[in-house]
Write a protein that binds this DNA or RNA. Structure first.
Lengths: 112, 112
DNA sequence: CGGTATCCAAGAAGATACTG
DNA sequence: CAGTATCTTCTTGGATACCG
């Protein structure tokens, strides 16, 4: 993702990209959304494939701190943790959809 | 920005964010767009402020290679180079606009 | 004016091992 | 199951100096 919060964002765009510009952030939001807005840690791990536990946990924590994800822990053994989008996170879905469509179009162009 | 192209993107979202997820990329596209879609190197340098020549040049080159920017060199001394969005770059503007608006909203929330 | 070149620091991400 | 901890590597970005 982009950058520590030691330095304040220079503008709203900068701010926004720090929040969702990480390597997997947009995809995580998207996957959860598509899965009826609930996904467990292990499901995400399988879905993203090749991501390490460390990176996944770290990314999820950042999204949570930024108010884009809810984290619900069930007090049971073995543990169960569910992630879902907050209202704020939901507001990003149309843009993620849009940019994904753009990316798809470009990829098709390239492959010609 | 995010990542070398040694490893192919895992999906369209990944692809897209590699292209515009860089530290200054979205802002550069936005500034040029707002300035009637033409900006000179020096103007960008002043506008972005604190960016080094190296980073600015590098970022502009990447945007050019990705087909988002046109680079027009005038054969004169002293040199003059103008950057403008391509059609593909233009297609990103609505998205950048929306995500900027989202960022603005979040920043306002935070400051309360 | 619009860059390059070189070197170095900071930050992001990966490998591996381990745990309540 | 859902993480932590630690160490290492890779990639990005910055400082500085210089050029056609």
């Amino acid at each position: 993702m982009i950058k520590k919060d030691t330095i304040p964002p220079v503008c709203a765009l900068d701010y926004a990209f720090r929040r969702i510009g990480g390597k997997h952030k947009a995809r995580i939001l998207w996957y959860i959304f598509k899965q009826d807005n609930v996904m467990r840690y292990g499901e995400l791990k399988k879905r993203i494939q090749n991501i390490t536990s460390k990176m996944l946990t770290q990314t999820l924590r950042e999204l949570e701190e930024d108010g884009l994800l809810n984290r619900k822990v069930y007090a049971q053994v073995p543990p169960k943790v569910e992630y879902s989008l907050t209202t704020t996170g939901m507001e990003l879905i149309p843009f993620i959809d849009h940019i994904g469509a753009w990316g798809r179009k470009q990829m098709e162009k390239e492959s010609q």
